[in-house]
Design a protein around this nucleic acid. Structure first.
Lengths: 100, 100
DNA sequence: TCAACATATGAACAATTATTCATATGTTCA
DNA sequence: TGAACATATGAATAATTGTTCATATGTTGA
């Protein structure tokens, strides 16, 4: 990343805040955590978390818009996956802080 | 961290969401970034960011409550520091994602 | 094509929160 | 002690956002 003489543009910090905002909701975190081991469909996630299908769908869209998850279509179902290992890393880093 | 057979308690995920919420505001991120190189007083931060002293003070309290910054008093001024290296690491990890 | 199913979307509401203004608290030094 | 300064705090407001309900879109198989 930048050193301290090269402060990120204001715009970058806004983007960064937006990224952290996505992680800053327990429903979205639970969805992401559900996807840690394997892909799951919308319905599966909703059932696992005991929440409305609509709620999960709305939040999956937020996650997808922010490139935290990606999809694979299979018939009527849409399976969601973590987009890359970055997602795990950010969550793990945060967990380290919380669990210390 | 936990493996996938040991899913963090719901409570932990709520705490984690709360932590990310703190990072999910551009003002707080800018404050933290200002403290990357060195400690600064409330007034200095307010001037650097061109924001109200009150705004900065409110947000510093949030950061302090969440153990992201700590203080050192020197006369009338209170100097704020990053609490530990974890803070930098989380931000850097997020930057990696944003800048990719 | 139509019924059944899975997912997405829009509107509405409630709750949370960042900022500002006004003022209080706390510290220094003359 | 009191004036000047630095920081903190409370109340109010505006804006953002997560959830729900109702419904739309899209897919499959008969």
């Amino acid at each position: 990343m930048e050193n301290q003489n090269n402060i990120p543009e204001l715009e970058i910090l806004f983007e960064l805040a937006d990224l952290f905002k996505v992680f800053g909701d327990s429903t979205r975190l639970r969805i992401l955590y559900t996807l840690f081991d394997d892909e799951h469909s919308v319905g599966e996630i909703a059932e696992t978390l005991g929440m409305e299908q609509s709620t999960i769908s709305h939040q999956l869209r937020v996650l997808r818009t922010n490139k935290l998850v990606k999809i694979r279509r299979d018939g009527k179902q849409i399976y969601y996956n973590l987009d890359d290992d970055h997602v795990k890393k950010v969550i793990e880093m945060g967990l380290d802080h919380v669990l210390e």
